[in-house]
């Protein structure tokens, strides 16, 4: 993993009183989605409306959202093509969901999940359906408040140095902001007065905050020999036991940030001569 290196040109301070203004500014880069506190306590990546209520409900330090951000790139069900009797498979018409989106408040674990998904959809053959959405997705990461179930340390996923356009770390009355891409820089340049330069004292507070978080990540999972164990225990009765409890509800593939299996279906229209091909989480 690359070492943390903060070039001071790539960092800014976003005072918290400017946060609503920052969120409003993101609107010109795409439709904004963020983890909103719902009345039932669940956090879910939801569209941030123009009103103050939604901005106030943004919860950047939430433990985990119900569903990972995977759904924005690899939707549970997606129309791939329209087909007709002449054999042509054409792109479905735009459905209003294809515009650029800004995902605000993506945690390092979820950013790492997206980087793995990127690799899956890039390797062997590039999947253009995935990357059409990926290229229109602005990622604004945010540091989390780990709970006792977070095992990021074992996965080396508690920190990211790529996979985001901007990254916000809570340092008390402000956010320490890292720019990961030129697009991230564009967002800052679009409203330069919302930010101030980083001072030495900010760096100290940032390091303290990171250390505190690192210490809060207590859960450790032994992973080193896991691939080999899985292979050697292929015939273990554990799998039968686990399989016996499975209801095939597919919740696991919904909540997994990297599960990418899918199935493909052709739906024929009533005319019997045209239809659409869809892919669906499997």
């Amino acid at each position: 993993m690359e070492k943390l290196e903060i070039k001071l040109g790539n960092v800014r301070i976003l005072p918290k009183e400017n946060f609503p203004r920052f969120v409003a500014g993101l609107g010109s880069f795409g439709e904004v989605f963020a983890p909103l506190r719902r009345p039932d306590g669940v956090r879910s990546f939801s569209r941030v409306g123009k009103g103050d209520g939604d901005v106030g409900a943004i919860d950047l330090r939430h433990p985990r959202t119900m569903l990972p951000p995977k759904k924005f790139l690899f939707p549970p069900e997606m129309e791939m093509y329209r087909f007709s009797a002449d054999g042509g498979f054409t792109d479905p018409p735009p459905n209003g969901e294809d515009g650029p989106k800004v995902l605000l408040g993506v945690h390092p674990c979820d950013i790492n999940g997206l980087l793995i998904l990127d690799e899956v959809f890039r390797r062997y053959y590039v999947d253009p359906h995935y990357f059409a959405k990926r290229e229109r997705l602005v990622i604004i990461g945010a540091n989390c408040e780990p709970d006792d179930k977070c095992f990021c340390k074992s996965m080396r996923s508690e920190y990211v140095d790529k996979g985001f356009d901007l990254f916000l770390t809570d340092i008390g009355d402000a956010y320490f902001l890292r720019m990961g891409t030129s697009l991230g820089s564009d967002i800052v340049v679009a409203d330069p007065d919302a930010f101030r330069p980083v001072e030495r004292a900010d760096v100290r507070v940032y390091k303290e905050a990171e250390n505190r978080r690192a210490q809060a990540l207590k859960s450790q999972v032994e992973l080193d020999s896991l691939p080999q164990i899985l292979e050697l225990e292929y015939d273990s009765e554990v799998w039968e036991e686990a399989g016996g409890r499975c209801l095939s509800c597919s919740t696991c593939s919904s909540v997994c940030p990297t599960c990418y299996c899918y199935d493909v279906f052709d739906h024929l229209n009533l005319d019997g001569a045209s239809g659409s091909r869809v892919r669906r989480w499997d």
Binding site: V120, F121, R123, Y124, Y125, D127, E231, Y260, C261, Y262, D263, V264, R279, D282
Partner: peptide, 19 residues
């Protein structure tokens, strides 16, 4: 199902039959 090493239908162990 996909032929290009994505959908995982043809996975055997850590290999894809299609790739």
């Amino acid at each position: 199902k996909c032929g290009i090493g994505k959908c995982s239908h043809c996975g055997v162990g850590y290999k894809y039959t299609c790739i």
